[in-house]
């Protein structure tokens, strides 16, 4: 790189514009690939955009803080997008109202199984208690899970990582899991992925079906209220 090229790079790499553009194009590429393979779950756009950007940051030696200066504009849209969930909820309100009782059951069962099974399996595999605390709220949306982790004496940063991995796992396995077990009810499928794999699962559900997406949004929202209550109840018992 010549002197002037380097100066240009130094200038651009410090503006939010560069990393915002990189984020959007990484997503466009990952989303095109996903659409090109008929939304095959392995072509998960979040997963593939994330490693592509991670690679660019590693190669260019860009710290995350600098990247986030640009990417924050995209991150910020999570708020209005959450508000926007009211629109499909309103559009399918009759379907939703009819499913209130099954949803209540699916919420309680799904949330308890998500919490208990994760902690029990990790404990059986020799994971220490402080990590188990950070693992417990992994099925709920990032901010809420990190708050729970902190209150219980866990590490919010570790919880953030586990939440994100859970979301990607959920959004990859939901379609094959439901297809092989013969579940065709898009309400139940969507709701389950929302409860178990929060917003990233919900994003997947919206790719597959509007009803599934609507129910995933409800599942995510309700679990964000239930898991913070469940963790203090179940965790002492699980840690023994």
């Amino acid at each position: 790189m010549s002197q002037s090229d380097f100066a240009l790079w130094v200038y651009l790499s410090r503006t939010p514009l560069l990393w915002l553009t990189v984020t959007i194009f990484a997503y466009v590429i990952a989303d095109r690939i996903s659409a090109g393979v008929h939304r095959n779950p392995l072509a998960n756009p979040v997963l593939h955009a994330v490693w592509m950007i991670g690679l660019v940051l590693a190669v260019t030696g860009t710290p995350y803080r600098v990247y986030f200066e640009g990417a924050q504009f995209v991150h910020f849209m999570l708020g209005p997008a959450t508000v926007a969930l009211a629109v499909p909820l309103y559009g399918h309100r009759r379907t939703v109202m009819r499913a209130l009782v099954p949803m209540a059951g699916a919420l309680v069962v799904g949330a308890i199984v998500a919490l208990v099974s994760a902690v029990a399996i990790a404990k059986a595999l020799g994971v220490p208690d402080d990590v188990l605390i950070s693992l417990a709220p992994k099925s709920v949306t990032g901010g809420v899970a990190m708050g729970v982790s902190e209150r219980m004496g866990g590490d919010p940063a570790l919880t953030g990582v586990l939440v994100m991995i859970t979301g990607v796992i959920g959004s990859i396995i939901v379609t094959p899991l439901m297809n092989t077990t013969g579940v065709k009810d898009m309400r139940a499928r969507g709701f389950a992925v929302g409860v178990a794999a929060h917003g990233i699962g919900t994003a997947r559900a919206f790719q597959v079906d509007m009803i599934a997406g609507t129910f995933a949004g409800i599942g995510m929202g309700l679990n964000a209220m239930l898991t913070p209550i469940l963790v203090p109840v179940f965790l002492p018992w699980l840690l023994g």
């Binding site: 984020t23 989303d31 994330v50 490693w51 995350y64 926007a84 629109v87 940063a157 994100m164 990233i200």
Partner: peptide, 23 residues
Amino acid sequence: LLSHLSLMFIPAGVGVVQRLDLV
């Protein structure tokens, strides 16, 4: 907005890649 919900998780996801040392 909702059809591009995946996009909005990317910045946080990139942060996770940088903290994989934790796991």
